[in-house]
Nucleic acid binder design. Structure first.
Length: 821
RNA sequence: GCCCCGAUAGCCCAAUGGCAGAGGCAGACGACUUAAAAUCGUCACAGUGUGGGUUCGAGUCCCACUCGGGGCACCA
């Protein structure tokens, strides 16, 4: 046994032992422990692990190891999100096969994770690029297809000219591609979609169930993203036409204030109406539409952009007032939100008043908010007030008028209460190679024909001979042998769909695949799902707050509806760890502030880095590597290790004879530590372990000495607690203390409440809330006795001298507060 | 523009409405040592961003503001 704490030595010593005994095997048939499912977001295999992974997996491991220590059978699996653009791009650059490149990275990351001593169950590993996995992507796609939840449509989609592929709405950030920051443009294409909007209400409403269990930030981001608005659809007839304009509005109470209509320039209705107009109007419209199509999102979203538009020289009839109002087209109305048309109420809408001012249209106030008339001030008012100039709505409040207007419109058959969502359907086709082939065959005669589910997987053809260079159409379109098949329906010549699925499809259900990762019979085994799912604790970065989590929630709800799972939310609790920064900003090679994980591990050791991640602060806060001290963590671990080494007694289960003071410190620690970990205050938990270490050091050097059995008890609990953060050190401590591995499963000691009962406490005396005196009192002291003691205090007498006492608050045995005037 | 989160010592961070300090970094001093490192120990430092309010008592609850971070945003 070594004399000194040697990081390298203990790292080399314990890894093979754990491989042998597999402390975190979650598949033992006779395992009677209750279950917990702890999941870390699986990594993308691009290069080796970095500091961000190190934090995420250190924190996830604290939770997994905590439950293991508490006696649970913890499933803590890991896999790789192995399909996707970065792998493909990197492969193109180096002329490699994306598959080889991916698997090499996986091997490297896996080795790093093992060295990092993550408590993963290595028998449950999966890779999404494995046909064994993506076969079930296809199978699920076909299930969605049967339910009408997977469909193809032509529309103007987000197009990244650099990645040469379409993007989901969620992958466009501020008009830029989230991957490469290129300006995203629009392109009319026929693409596959998942009908997320069918689930919009449930995706929004069910967030309430997660209140307090998910970070409120994520909940609000999801709510914002789904963006439900309540209102009404109102129909406006068009003068001298049998067409009508249906608008969506959240303010039907302002119907009488509508002084114009605006259609999205790129909407079908706009085109129809323009076609009926004079040649001059048609020309102006065509010209305007051209300009709109050319504009990208960056230009379109510019906040201070002037309002533009074209008057169609046609009029609509307000269904309530009967007034005729002019019909315009403009690009400030979006074709794919609501009905693609609005009623312009300039007095009470910022955008409409801008348009009205630009075009010289009438501004008619219908809600008197007490502010200046918008027609005069030029500033729209949107607050509550009294309805005016609005016929039967006059005199009502905003809320009442909204209800009344809907009622009237419904009774007249010219409108209906309705709601709209910001959320759009999920575009899942990608024109790239390295992804899951869409299991559909296109036949000229039969149209879309799904591949039979028992014919899956449709495997990805070998990449050799294919041009993976992005060129706007799928590389699979050139894989003739693969592409050309006979139609399953009529037997005629047909072609496979050559697009691949968005990789977010892969990650939308992987947490279920871990239940039976090798199954060829099911996507996941329903019996295992009953046992383990949903995930008790999910851990990952807030970067996935919208995309991945929304899609996974959507999948779960669909799987629930087709009877595959009996729950509707996939992740019961969510922890978002912060980022690891260096000198205030995200690490990057170009910034020159990159800290290499492997280097840190070499210098300080695995345990010190893991401990540093946990101790740096609350898990959801960012860690600035410049603010933390892994060297100090290593020093602490050595200090803890020496405690175990100094213990000079035989292993026993009977600690009753130990020193009461030391035992009390240990048992207080147990209470505080578990409380801290359960609340995910890992930094506080570590601080408590440091406190116990300090107390034990003192006991050994200046107190009862290393032979007292209470010192052993404290050292053992310390080792068990440290197993959450520092697996190598704690295992070695456990051995020094004369035990067999694994310390990770040893189980915390049972708290002896009798040791925690205080005989006396320190009572505090305040005058006007300020501390003036304190003394040790018996716990059983009465209010009257304590008050008498307080009043007798010289310090108190001095303070209250000459003052009038108005009140005395006594909270025996802790506190007396004397209020004076 | 709307919504959310945060602000405590030189620094990172603790504190069920009840003594502002658990822990750490950096710092000073001391013990051990021929010396240094390592180790062990002792000490100092803020009244909680600003202004109000509730309360016997506010870092903690309420209101307004400042600063920082984040989300949504021509979404009708």
């Amino acid at each position: 046994m070594q004399e000194n704490y040697d990081v390298t030595e203990i790292q080399n010593k314990w890894l093979p032992v754990w491989d042998e005994i597999k402390p975190f095997d979650s598949s033992r048939a006779d395992d009677a422990r209750p279950t917990k499912y702890v999941l870390d977001m699986f990594p993308y295999p691009s290069g080796d692990l970095h500091m961000g992974h190190a934090e995420a997996y250190a924190l996830g491991d604290v939770i997994a190891r905590y439950w293991a220590q508490k006696g649970y059978n913890v499933m803590h699996p890991i896999g790789w999100d192995a399909f996707g653009l970065p792998a493909e791009n990197a492969a193109i650059k180096r002329g490699l096969d994306p598959r080889d490149w991916t698997y090499e990275n996986i091997a490297q990351q896996k080795a790093s994770m093992r060295r990092y001593a993550c408590s993963f169950d290595w028998d449950r590993v999966l890779q999404t690029c494995d046909p064994l996995y993506y076969r079930w992507n296809q199978w699920l796609f076909l299930e969605f297809y049967k339910k009408g939840l997977a469909y193809r449509k032509n529309s103007n989609v987000n197009w990244c000219p650099s990645c040469q592929t379409v993007l989901a709405n969620e992958q466009v950030v501020q008009g830029l591609c989230e991957r490469c920051d290129s300006v995203v443009t629009k392109k009319a294409l026929t693409q596959w979609y998942f009908k997320v909007t069918d689930y919009a209400d449930r995706l929004l409403d069910d967030l309430d169930q997660l209140e307090g269990k998910w970070p409120s930030k994520v909940l609000s981001m999801q709510r914002n993203w789904i963006g439900r608005s309540q209102g009404a659809n109102i129909d406006f007839n068009i003068v001298d036409s049998d067409q009508k304009i249906s608008v969506f509005t959240t303010r039907p109470d302002t119907l009488f204030g509508a002084t114009f209509m605006v259609l999205a320039a790129d909407s079908e209705l706009a085109a129809n109406l323009a076609a009926n107009a004079s040649d001059t109007v048609q020309q102006a419209f065509e010209q305007y539409l051209d300009g709109v199509k050319k504009a990208n999102d960056i230009e379109r979203l510019a906040t201070d952009r002037k309002k533009t538009g074209v008057f169609l020289e046609q009029y609509a009839i307000n269904p309530l007032s009967g007034e005729q109002v002019p019909i315009w087209v403009s690009d400030y109305v979006l074709a794919d939100y609501g009905t693609g048309a609005i009623m312009g109420v300039p007095a009470h809408d910022d955008r409409d008043i801008e348009f009205a001012k630009a075009m010289g249209l009438e501004i008619k106030m219908v809600v008197d908010t007490g502010e200046e008339d918008p027609a005069v001030s030029g500033i729209a008012t949107s607050g509550d007030g009294v309805i005016v100039n609005s016929g039967e709505l006059n005199g009502l409040s905003k809320q009442d008028a909204i209800a009344k207007a809907i009622e009237i419109a419904e009774s007249k058959g010219t409108g209906v209460g309705s709601k709209n969502f910001r959320l759009r359907d999920w575009l899942i086709s990608r024109q790239r190679y390295w992804g899951t082939p869409i299991p559909i065959i296109h036949c000229e005669k039969c149209g879309e024909v799904p591949v039979s589910q028992d014919q899956l997987p449709v495997t990805l053809p070998d990449s050799s001979g294919l041009d993976l260079q992005p060129k706007g159409t799928s590389p699979l379109g050139a894989a003739d042998q693969w592409l050309n098949v006979s139609c399953p329906s009529c037997g005629g010549a047909a072609k496979r769909d050559s697009d691949t699925m968005d990789t977010f499809v892969d990650s939308s259900w992987y947490f279920l695949r871990f239940l039976s990762p090798h199954s060829e019979e099911f996507a996941f085994d329903p019996a295992e799902a009953k046992k383990w799912a949903p995930v008790d604790q999910y851990v990952g970065g807030v970067t996935h707050a919208i995309l991945h989590l929304l899609y996974a929630r959507f999948f779960t709800k669909v799987l629930h509806d087709i009877g595959m799972v009996d729950f509707e939310e996939p992740f019961t609790r969510l922890l978002n760890q912060g980022m690891v920064l260096m000198n205030g900003s995200a690490m990057s090679k170009s910034r020159g502030n990159l800290v290499r994980l492997s280097e840190q591990l070499d210098i300080h050791g695995v345990d010190a880095i893991r401990l540093t991640m946990a101790f740096a602060g609350p898990p959801e806060d960012d860690i600035d590597w410049a603010d933390v001290s892994p060297a100090a963590s290593a020093k602490f671990l050595a200090r803890a290790w020496r405690i175990a080494k100094d213990v000079d007694s035989e292993p026993t289960a009977d600690f009753a004879a130990g020193d009461k003071g030391v035992r009390k410190a240990t048992h207080q620690f147990l209470v505080g530590f578990e409380e801290a970990i359960e609340a995910h205050k890992f930094n506080v938990g570590v601080a408590k372990a440091m406190e116990l270490t300090n107390a034990l050091r003192k006991a050994i050097d200046q107190g009862v000495g290393p032979k007292d059995i209470a010192v052993r008890e404290g050292a053992e609990e310390l080792a068990k607690a440290l197993s959450l953060f520092a697996p190598y050190t704690s295992e070695d401590m456990w051995q020094l203390l004369g035990h067999e591995p694994a310390v990770a499963l040893a189980g915390f000691g049972t708290v002896d409440q009798s040791l925690l009962v205080e005989q006396s406490t320190v009572a505090v005396v305040q005058v006007d809330g300020k501390l003036r005196d304190k003394f040790e009192v018996d716990l059983s002291i009465t209010d009257a006795e304590l008050e008498a003691m307080a009043m007798a205090s010289a310090a108190v007498q001095r303070t209250i001298e000459g003052k009038e006492i108005v009140n005395v608050i006594v909270r025996a045995p802790k506190l007396v507060n004397i209020a004076t005037k």
